[in-house]
Design a protein around this nucleic acid. Structure first.
Lengths: 336, 336
DNA sequence: CTGAAAGCGCTTACAG
DNA sequence: CTGAAAGCGCTTACAG
C-alpha cells in the first residue's frame, strides 16, 4: 500500500541511501544504478514522504502567508486572490508549498505568524501589509526570520520587499491628463502618512512641475477609501474651486463617488471634468462612463515576493532586497 | 537557540516521553510533573516541531486546497477569498493548517492534488468545483482519499459535500416577486446541465406553481455568465414577449446586462420590470438602480467544508456527509 | 505514574 | 560508486 524508500531499495537491490541519492540525481551514482532504481520507483509509484524529508533536511520547503483581517474588504479581495496566484505559481516551480492562515484582527496576525514559525512548518513568511509601527515586522526582524513584505517599508535596507511603482503610475496618469489638455488637476489620495500615498503624490507633483503647472495645495485632499468619502470630498472641492478639469483618485471606489459628485454638480464626464481611479477593479469597466484606472499587477507582485524570499532563504547572499513592479494605465471613457 | 523536547526533558529532570505526554495533557501524568514540565516549557519558550510530530503521527494535520484555474475570474474572486477565510478560521481552532496551491488549467488540478497527496503533506483535500465528469473526484474516490466538494455532486451519497441552498434561494426570490404583484417572471440561468442551475430552476418553478402561475418555457433561458450575454438574451426576450414584469438572473453580471437591455427597450426598473441578480457582488450595490441579489455565505461554506472533512478524517463514522448553507436575499431598488 | 527503546521515512557524513 | 549508521524531533507500546 504505502511505499517507502526502503521498499524501493529492497526491490532494486540497493540501499536506501542509494535510492535517496538517485532521487536527488546525485552525481555520485552510476547511470546504471539510476536507471534501475528509477524503474522500480515508477513501477511502485513511489513518492518521497515530504514530511520525513523536511525533518531530515531541517527545512519545510514551505512559506507562510497570513490573510490580513482587512481581506474581507471587497476591494482588497481581487488583489489578494491574484497575489496568491502569483505566489503559488512561483512556488510550485521551485518545489515549495504555501501554508495559509487567516487573522481575526490585526493583533491576531502576530499569533498566526509566530505559530507558523515556532512549529517549524514554514521557512519564511510573506507579509501583505506594511503598517506604520509594524509589530509583525519587528517580531520577524528581532527573531532574524526570513520574510518579505508587500509595500515599501520605512527602513528599506533592513528587509525584503516588493511594491508597485506608485510614483511612476501617478506620473503616467498625470502626464496623460496634461497632454490631453488638462490644467487644473485635483488629487484625492489616502492618508498622507502612508508610504503609498506619499509616492503617488510625488509622482503627481513632479509631473505638474515638469510641465510648468502650479502645485495647488487646495487641489490635494486626503480621503478615506469609500464611495461616500469620494463623493463628499469632491462635492466640497467643486463648490470651492471652480476651474477644476480633472480629478485623480487613488481608488476606484473613491473615483466612483467622485464621479457621482461631478455629475450632481452639473458637470459632464469627461467633457468638463475627467476622473481617474486606481486598482482597476471590476467597477471600473462597468461604471458609466467607464473609468480610466491604474491596474496593479498583483500576480507579478506575488511572484516576485515569493522569488525574492526564496532567493534569500536559499542563498542568503541577496543581491536585490526589493523588487518594483510596473503598473498599467487602462484608458477608458472617464478621461478625454 | 533551537529548543527541543530533549532540552525540556533534561531541564525538567524527566524523560522526553514524559514531556510528550505533558504536551498532550495525558491523564497518566501527575499534576506535579505537569506543572514542573510546563514551567520549563514556558521558561525555555519551547514549541513542538510539528514536522516531527507529523512524521511520528503519520498525519500532517493539514488540508489541501487547489485554486481552480477559473479563480482569475473577477467574479469568482470574492467568493474564493471568503471561502478561504472560512476554511482557515475553522482549521485554526482545530489545530489544522491549510496548504494552498494553484492550477494553471483544469488538467493541472489533478497534478496538484496528487502531488499534495503523494507527498503526504495533507490529510485531505477540499475541492472547489464539481464538474460533470470530474477527474479529480474520480481520482480521489478511487484512491479512497478523504475529500469534500463544494457544490452538489451527482452521486450525493458517495462523498462529502457542502452547497448553498439554491432551491430555497430561488423560491425566496420568486415568492418575493410574486407577492409584490409580478406575474410574468422570466428566468435567465446558466447551463441547465449544471446541478446548480437545475436546483435554482426547480425553486423557481415550484414557487410559480404554488401561486398558481403558469410555467412558460419561453420565459426560461440559458445564458453564459457575462454582461454581454445578459444583454443579448434579455433584448431578444423583450422583443418576443411583451408582458414580462420581472427577470430573475443567476448572476449579477447577467443581471447588469439584463438591466441595460431593459432600459434600452424603453422600460423602467423596477416600475415596469424588476430585475434580480445572484452572488451579491460589489456591482450589486453600486449599480443604478441598485440590484436586488442573493448573497452566498462563502465564509460559512468554507467553514462547513473544513468541518465535515475534519470530522470524517478524525472519526470516519460520518453522520452527515453533506451540509447545506442558507443564502440571504438582499432587497434593493431593482425590484418593487 | 514514568522511562528506555523502537519507530515514523527520510538524509548525509563517514568509511570503504 | 555504494552502504551501514546515526540523526532529524517527535510518539507510543511495552515494561516496570
Amino acid at each position: 500500500m504505502k511505499v517507502t524508500i526502503k521498499e524501493v531499495a529492497q526491490q532494486a537491490n540497493v540501499s536506501p541511501s542509494t535510492v535517496s541519492r538517485v532521487l536527488k540525481d546525485s552525481h555520485m551514482i552510476s547511470q546504471a544504478t539510476k536507471d534501475k532504481v528509477n524503474e522500480i520507483i515508477n513501477q511502485l509509484g513511489y513518492h518521497p514522504n515530504e514530511i520525513a524529508r523536511s525533518l531530515a533536511n531541517q527545512s519545510s520547503q514551505t512559506l507562510g502567508l497570513v490573510m490580513p483581517a482587512s481581506v474581507e474588504d471587497n476591494f482588497v479581495n481581487p488583489f489578494f486572490t491574484q497575489f496568491l496566484l502569483g505566489v503559488t505559481q512561483y512556488l510550485e516551480v521551485h518545489d515549495y508549498s504555501l501554508l495559509l492562515s487567516s487573522a481575526k484582527n490585526e493583533e491576531d496576525e502576530l499569533n498566526q505568524i509566530s505559530r507558523a514559525i515556532n512549529s517549524k512548518r514554514v521557512d519564511g513568511i510573506i507579509l501583505l501589509t506594511v503598517r506604520e509601527k509594524d509589530n509583525n515586522i519587528n517580531y520577524l526582524l528581532e527573531n532574524n526570520y526570513p520574510f518579505v513584505v508587500v509595500g515599501t517599508p520605512a527602513e528599506k535596507e533592513k528587509m525584503l520587499w516588493v511594491d508597485n511603482d506608485n510614483k511612476k503610475a501617478m506620473r503616467e496618469v498625470t502626464e496623460n491628463l496634461i497632454l490631453s489638455g488638462h490644467k487644473r488637476i485635483a488629487f484625492l489620495g489616502g492618508s498622507q502618512k502612508l508610504q503609498v500615498t506619499k509616492s503617488r503624490l510625488i509622482g503627481y507633483k513632479e509631473t505638474l512641475k515638469k510641465y510648468g503647472l502650479e502645485v495647488d495645495r487646495n487641489l490635494i485632499l486626503e480621503v478615506q477609501f469609500s464611495e461616500e468619502e469620494g463623493y463628499r470630498a469632491t462635492n466640497d472641492l467643486l463648490k470651492k474651486v471652480k476651474d477644476i478639469d480633472a480629478i485623480i483618485t487613488t481608488d476606484d471606489l473613491i473615483a466612483y463617488g467622485s464621479m457621482r459628485a461631478v455629475k450632481d454638480n452639473g458637470y459632464l464626464i469627461p467633457q468638463d471634468i475627467s476622473v481617474t481611479g486606481f486598482n482597476n477593479t471590476i467597477l471600473a469597466q462597468y461604471l458609466s462612463p467607464s473609468l480610466t484606472s491604474v491596474e496593479i499587477n498583483a500576480i507579478e507582485l506575488g511572484c516576485q515576493a515569493a522569488k525574492i524570499l526564496l532567493n534569500h532563504i536559499n542563498d542568503n547572499k541577496l543581491k536585490n532586497n526589493f523588487h518594483i513592479v510596473d503598473t498599467k494605465l487602462m484608458m477608458r471613457d472617464s478621461t478625454k
